[in-house]
Simulated scan of single mutants.
Amino acid sequence: MRDEQILVVGGTGTTGSRVVALLRERGVAVRVASRTGEPRFDWIDRGTWDGALDGVTGVYVVPFDGESLTRPFVERAVARDVGRIVLLSGRGVDVPGYAGEASVAGPTHVDGEDAVRGLGTGTGTGTGSGAGGGGGAGTRWTIVRPAWFAQNFSEGFFLDAVLTGELRLPAGDGAASFVDADDIAAVAVAALTEDGHGGRTYELSGPRALTIAEALAEISGAAGREIRYVPLSPEEFVAELREQGLSAAEAADYAESLSPLRRGLDSHVSDGVRRALGREPRDFHAFVKSAAADGAWRTRRSTN
Rank of each mutant, 00 (worst) to 15 (best):
residue 23 L to R: 03
residue 100 G to C: 07
residue 290 S to A: 11
residue 144 V to L: 12
residue 113 E to M: 05
residue 230 V to A: 05
residue 220 S to F: 01
residue 196 G to L: 08
residue 147 A to E: 06
residue 260 P to S: 02
residue 235 E to V: 15
residue 212 I to P: 03
residue 68 S to Q: 05
residue 198 G to P: 08
residue 134 G to W: 01
residue 113 E to Y: 15
residue 300 R to F: 08
residue 135 G to A: 02
residue 169 L to N: 00
residue 285 H to G: 09
residue 36 T to K: 11
residue 278 G to H: 02
residue 150 A to G: 07
residue 237 F to C: 02
residue 142 T to Q: 04
residue 261 L to M: 04
residue 123 T to Y: 15
residue 301 R to S: 05
residue 28 V to R: 01
residue 32 V to M: 06
residue 87 L to H: 09
residue 214 E to P: 15
residue 114 D to Q: 15
residue 162 V to R: 12
residue 25 E to V: 05
residue 13 G to L: 15
residue 233 S to M: 07
residue 45 D to W: 10
residue 160 D to F: 09
residue 33 A to I: 04
residue 299 T to R: 06
residue 179 V to G: 09
residue 256 E to P: 01
residue 9 V to N: 14
residue 60 Y to R: 07
residue 231 P to R: 05
residue 196 G to I: 09
residue 277 L to S: 08
residue 86 V to R: 11
residue 48 T to L: 15
residue 202 Y to G: 07
residue 64 F to Y: 15
residue 270 S to F: 08
residue 33 A to Q: 03
residue 60 Y to D: 15
residue 40 R to C: 10
residue 269 V to K: 08
residue 77 A to G: 06
residue 204 L to Y: 09
residue 193 T to K: 09
residue 105 A to K: 09
residue 268 H to M: 15
residue 233 S to Y: 07
residue 102 A to I: 14
residue 230 V to Q: 08
residue 203 E to F: 11
residue 253 D to S: 12
